[in-house]
Structures are given as C-alpha cells and as structure tokens.
Simulated scan of single mutants.
Amino acid sequence: MGLLEGKVALVTGASRGVGKGIALGLAEQGATVYVTGRTESAGAHPTPLPGTVQETAEEVTAVGGRGVAIACDHRDDEQTRQAVRQVVTDAGRLDVLVNNVWGGYEYFWDGTPFWEEAGFWTQPIERWDSAFQAGVRAHYVTSVAAVPTMVAQRSGLIVNVSSEGAEKTDTGVAYGAAKAATDHMVACMAHELRDHGVTAVSLYPGLVRTESVLRAAEYFDLTDSESPQFVGRGVAALAADPEVIHLTGQVVRSAQLARRYNFSDPNPR
C-alpha cells in the first residue's frame, strides 16, 4: 500500500513537464490525482510540445494511482473554480494542491528570436501579464477555491512550484518578479493557515529535463539535471510527512528533499 493511499491531490498544468512528473510522483504512492491542462487532444497543443491532460491521467493510473483529467485554462478564474469544485464534489476531500501552471514562456514557441527579447524593454507587456495572470493569479485563485475544504479538514498541503529565479537578478524581470511574488504569497498564506493545520511551501526544482528543456538540450548542461518524476517524489514525500507543518512558509528544494526523505531519481542521467 502506498503512503498516500486514500489521499486526493490536484495538480495544475500537468499535461507535461514538471506538473506531469509531480502527478506521477504522487500516483506512485497511491494517491488519486486530478490533473488540469489546456491540451485535450494530440496535435491541438497550445505549444508545439507532446502531451495531453488525458494522457497524464492515464499514466497516473498506470503507475498505481487514480488519474482524473480536467480540461482547464487557469487564465479563466471560473474554469479554475469549477475544476476545484469538481474535485471536492467527486472525492469529498482535497489533501494536496500543487500550483504548477505558469505563463510567460510564449517566446519559446511563438517564433520570436530570443535575441530580440534580450532586455525587458524589448519585450511585449503581455509577457509580464502572462506570468502574473497564468502564474501568480492562477496560484492564488486556485488556492482560494481549495483552502475552505482543507480548513474544514484541518489538514492539507499547498505546494507552489517556483524557482531560484525568485532570488536572482539574471532570469528576466517579469519572470523573477513573478516567482518572487509567488514565494511571498506562500509565506503570507502559511502565516494565515498554520492555525488551521494547513501547510504551504514554495518548491524549487533544479534543472528539470522537461520536454521543453530536452527540445533545446544543446543549450543546457544536463549533467546534474532532474527528471520531472524526481520532483514529484519530493512532493509525495512532503505529502506523506505527518510533521510537514514544520516546513510551512519555507522554500524547499527538490534535491534537499531527496536527502531529507531518502528517495532517488527514477530516471537519472
């Protein structure tokens, strides 16, 4: 029996990449995992990358969990609220919320030569809007919708997927500001949720071998990179830790979680 048997999770932005890896990591421990994404059918991707939300749900079930796909564009607040309502109505509980969905990466696939956006003053304002609407705002709205159930249970874990870009100055103005905003949002949420038994953390993966990174592998040193499912095992370990409240409000890194909880990468380099 998995450590998360009977637990229910919602992972946003899970058609591929880190979100998919997290869903699979939770599924390995027997969780029921609801996954959201915009891509519903192969060949109809918002991005030129493989993966659909239904495929992720099927893989979740295949590795030992129960996967449920929810088509959702988290730029639309009502779609976000409806996704959370579906989880709570179907499952009657919500133990883990992983806010992974993000925006602002459009320049990777909209045909813009990267050198034409070498400074924030050369970028369309939409890059900022996307990072904050499809990223920070989506994390906030999903949490607002999910927290009443967790408070009523007096238990729950919220993980906002962030990055070291929040602490650096060379990752782009919009990206860095948005990641810093989501980190501070977690700290503030943790302050308000602690007395209700609900934990909130920011998660920094390392360099993850997502479909997007592998597509541009020639530009990366993948020597110390992580598989998406390695990140997922970190989230699963947090979700299974009965003392996880001691980490609330903090930034946790996937490599540190591996040492803390003694797990390994299922797909090492």
Results as ranks from 00 to 15, higher is better:
Gln82Ser: 08
Gly51Trp: 01
Ala83Leu: 02
Glu117Met: 14
Glu126Pro: 02
Phe108Arg: 09
Thr47Cys: 07
Pro124Thr: 03
Gln54His: 10
Pro48Ala: 09
Asp110Trp: 04
Leu97Met: 05
Gly51Ser: 03
Trp109Ile: 04
Asp77Ser: 13
Trp109Asn: 05
His45Arg: 15
Ile125Glu: 14
Val101Glu: 06
Pro48Tyr: 10
Gln29Phe: 06
Glu106Ala: 11
Thr39Gln: 05
Asn100Glu: 03
Arg85Ser: 09
Asp95Gly: 04
Leu49Gly: 06
Ile22Leu: 02
Gln54Ser: 09
Gln123Ser: 15
Cys72Gln: 08
Ile22Phe: 00
Asp110Lys: 04
Gly92Ile: 02
Ile125Thr: 15
Arg75Met: 11
Gly37Tyr: 03
Val60His: 10
Ala31Leu: 04
Phe120Lys: 08
Gly111Ala: 03
Val35Ser: 07
Glu58Arg: 15
Tyr34Lys: 06
Gly43Cys: 12
Gly103Gln: 07
Glu126Val: 07
Ala91Glu: 09
Glu59Gly: 07
Gly67Tyr: 05
Thr36His: 02
Leu26Asp: 02
Gly25Pro: 00
Thr47Lys: 05
Val63Lys: 13
Leu49Lys: 11
Thr122Glu: 15
Thr36Asn: 01
Gly67Ile: 05
Thr122Ile: 06
Gly25Val: 00
Val88Trp: 07
Gln29Ser: 13
Trp102Gln: 07
Ala57Arg: 00
Gly51Thr: 02
Gln29His: 12
Glu55Gln: 13
Thr122Leu: 13
Asn100Cys: 08
Leu49Ser: 09
Val98Trp: 00
Gln86Gly: 06
Gln123Ile: 11
Gln82Met: 05
Cys72Ser: 13
Glu116Ile: 02
Val101Asp: 13
Asn99Arg: 04
Val88Glu: 12
Trp115Tyr: 15
Tyr34Leu: 04
Arg85Asn: 10
Trp121Arg: 15
Gly25Leu: 01
Thr47His: 10
Gly104Pro: 02
Pro113His: 02
Gly43His: 10
Asp73Arg: 09
Thr39Pro: 03
Val101Lys: 09
Leu97Ile: 08
Trp109Val: 06
Glu28Gly: 04
His74Glu: 12
Val88Asp: 04
Ile22Glu: 00
Pro50Tyr: 13
Phe108Ile: 09
Val53Arg: 04
Val87Asp: 05
Gln29Pro: 00
Val87Lys: 00
Gly25Asp: 00
Gly92Lys: 01
Ala62Val: 08
Ala23Trp: 01
Gln79Glu: 14
Gly65Ile: 11
Asp76Leu: 12
Asn100Thr: 07
Asp77Asn: 12
Asn100Phe: 04
Ala62Asn: 12
Gly119Asn: 13
Ala42Glu: 12
Pro46Arg: 09
Asp76Ile: 10
Gly25Cys: 00
Val33Trp: 04
Val87Ala: 10
Glu126Asn: 11
Leu24Glu: 01
Leu49Tyr: 13
Phe114Pro: 12
Val84Phe: 05
Ala91Met: 03
Glu28His: 09
Gly67Glu: 04
Trp115Glu: 15
